[in-house]
Design a protein around this nucleic acid. Structure first.
Lengths: 181, 181
DNA sequence: CCTCAAGTGGACGCGGTGTCCACTTGAGGC
DNA sequence: GCCTCAAGTGGACACCGCGTCCACTTGAGG
């Protein structure tokens, strides 16, 4: 059975309010009650769909990530298939830094309780990078994939930018890393 | 004025109890009250010294980390000075994986609230790796240092080991990375 | 228009946090 | 040995966010 009309309306209100709150204050400073109030909705309604802050952030991110995932699978090189693995990795790094730049608060909000690695998105990035490492002929690409993804941790990104490091410098350092592959 | 005798006794009891609790259950499953009770001490006494779980874990780690830091500064090569930077980095990776293996719950406990990068220890590791990158002639060693440290994030280590990846494989992958330098 | 399942919202209980302050203890002066 | 008082102690307290529960409302299909 499809979602009822009022339910759909409330879901939209919740997501809009949450995105607003997450980006203005930090994600950690937003309570479930804040979101419920901002959305003009009761706590129970909120919990019916989203068991915690994390799941809301994940829902918000989904759309943005899906677009990048599409580009990786079927887009033009060097992001999509066709370019040598080192170049594809560099392009992937650059795109991910862009994603972090635009949605860092969301990405961080999605990580309540060290859930980063269990989310579906991480699995996707992981597979992508593993395949790249594999075609580049690296040893143990399974473990190397995690290693190569580690510098994209949102906490690190936020720490670096708060220290005054620009996204360009981060991208450059990552490109350097990709070039070694 | 030095610490009073009863205060010193209580500090020792607190640290012992906390280490015990952190390592048996996960760090996230330990409350301040748990620690206070296990140490046979009131909540107020606990808070007097340690404002939160994180600071206790940091205190516990300090000793272990100090030993490694000593080795990096004045130990024998390849950990200490004398070996080429790539080898020193590999040795450093190996030592850090060992540290994580032995004290992962503590390291994770020390990270309450994404404080990882602001702790003194991180600054030390960062400087060490930056100098290595610098002598290896890398561009922008300042940013590269963070990138090279990222794969040592304790959450990643725990995720990998819980997936059945051995410390040896992790070390090998990191050695591979260090070799590229 | 009626029915009833889906959806709603706020009251409630729980557990952890951090503070506060009346009491205790130990170190140093005599 | 005793006295003094600052350092240290511990538990009661108020607060806050979480997640649940259930009596009520709403909307879709017959």
């Amino acid at each position: 059975m499809p979602e009822r009309a009022d339910a759909a309306r409330n879901r939209a209100k919740i997501l809009a309010a949450a995105e607003q709150l997450f980006t203005t204050r930090g994600a950690a400073e937003v309570t479930m009650e804040d979101i419920a109030r901002a959305a003009g909705v009761g706590r129970g309604t909120l919990y019916r769909r989203y068991p915690d802050r994390s799941s809301i952030a994940v829902a918000l991110l989904d759309e943005h990530e899906r677009r990048l995932q599409e580009s990786l699978l079927r887009g033009d090189p060097p992001l999509g298939p066709g370019a040598p693995p080192a170049e594809r990795l560099a392009a992937f790094y650059e795109a991910m830094v862009g994603l972090l730049e635009r949605h860092a608060p969301l990405v961080l909000g999605a990580e309540v309780g060290h859930s980063r690695f269990t989310t579906g998105a991480y699995g996707f990035w992981r597979t992508h990078v593993r395949v790249l490492a594999e075609t580049a002929g690296a040893a143990d690409p399974d473990v190397l994939a995690d290693v190569l993804l580690a510098p994209l941790a949102p906490e690190l990104f936020l720490h670096q930018t708060s220290r005054g490091v620009s996204s360009e410098r981060i991208t450059a350092a990552l490109r350097q890393l990709a070039g070694l592959l």
